[in-house]
């Protein structure tokens, strides 16, 4: 049962009181089911108003019309007095009763009550009105997703974001104050350093190049696996679950990749010396100039 707001009930009672010529308090108590409803003697014709599409749905068949939603169980109108039903959910103040124009168009007796002070709009029909239902404001379409638990971005997201941003900034400044970026001798195409190493994020590739044919290691791995393969992950993995325990295979594959790439990179950075021979960083030192000052840091 919909809980009807007090002011709507009052407004409806006012309308009913005016229509039946009784007091507002009387109408109100009738609608609340506290007193017996006023019976109207004359037999009006039933005007059927469909709630959703008013103009088309006028069915003048007398009693049994299943279309109307009978929400108001109290205010039980006696059977012998069919009640003219009106959508009162948004009926205006009782002065302008002629306002529900679409419903009036459906009335069989086309009495045009153009004069505003004339309340009676169908002379032979004694109108009784009552509140059928209050239609709650809700979207026509049902939303596909359930409402989720949300918090305000400010401050719940922006504050942690700002703090981590400041922490990162502090970390970067301190790092840059202590560690000097490497600057070796001026570039000289005639002097090849041994070993010549790529930037660290390509050293895994460079390491792979020492095992396999360059066509495979230099092209297939970065292009086919790296770019195309990675971009295609969501189209290959059609498993809809995102719970880790239900996508063990995908997690395993990615972790293998991470471990492999990480191992190759670490070998390339730390364990490769002149001639790309195996060296131990704790015996032969590190042959990676980008990290020189990390190591010589005192």
């Amino acid at each position: 049962m919909v809980d009807i707001p007090e002011h709507l009930l009052l407004r409806s009672a006012e309308a009913r009181a005016k229509a039946l010529g009784i007091s507002v308090e009387q109408a109100l108590s009738e609608m609340k089911g506290e007193s017996t409803p006023t019976v109207v003697e004359e037999e009006p014709e039933v005007i059927e108003v469909e709630l959703v599409t008013p103009p088309e749905a006028e069915v003048p068949a007398p009693v049994e019309t299943p279309v109307v939603e009978e929400v108001k169980a109290e205010a039980p109108a006696p059977v012998e007095t069919p009640v003219v039903e009106e959508v009162k959910a948004e009926a205006p103040a009782p002065v302008e009763v002629e306002a529900p124009a679409p419903t009036k168009a459906a009335a069989p007796a086309p009495a045009k009550a153009d004069t505003p002070e004339e309340v009676e709009f169908a002379p032979e029909v004694k109108v009784t009105q009552r509140l059928l239902t209050v239609v709650k404001a809700k979207p026509i379409q049902k939303a596909a997703s359930e409402p989720v638990d949300k918090v305000n971005t400010w401050p719940h997201l922006m504050l942690p974001e700002f703090i981590s941003l400041m922490v990162m900034m502090a970390f970067l400044i301190i790092l840059s104050a202590i560690l000097q970026a490497p600057l070796l001798e001026e570039a000289n195409p005639n002097i090849t350093p041994n070993p010549a190493k790529a930037p660290w994020y390509f050293l895994g590739l460079q390491e792979a190049l020492s095992y396999w044919d360059p066509q495979i290691a230099g092209v297939m791995i970065p292009l086919v696996i790296g770019l195309i393969g990675f971009a295609a992950i969501p189209y290959i993995d059609r498993n809809k679950e995102n719970n880790p325990s239900k996508r063990k295979y995908a997690i395993m594959m990615y972790t293998f990749f991470l471990a492999g790439a990480g191992t190759l990179t670490i070998i390339g950075v730390l364990f490769r010396g002149p001639g790309w021979n195996w060296t131990y960083p704790w015996i032969d030192g590190i042959w990676f100039d980008d990290l020189l000052d990390w190591i010589n840091f005192e």
């Binding site: 000289n188 930037p199 390509f202 460079q206």
Partner: peptide, 17 residues
């Protein structure tokens, strides 16, 4: 510097494959 030119040379050689 030497670090820059030779790292980029290595990278460019990779692309040449």
């Amino acid at each position: 510097d030497q670090l820059a030119i030779w790292a980029v040379t290595v990278g460019g050689n990779m692309a040449s494959y």
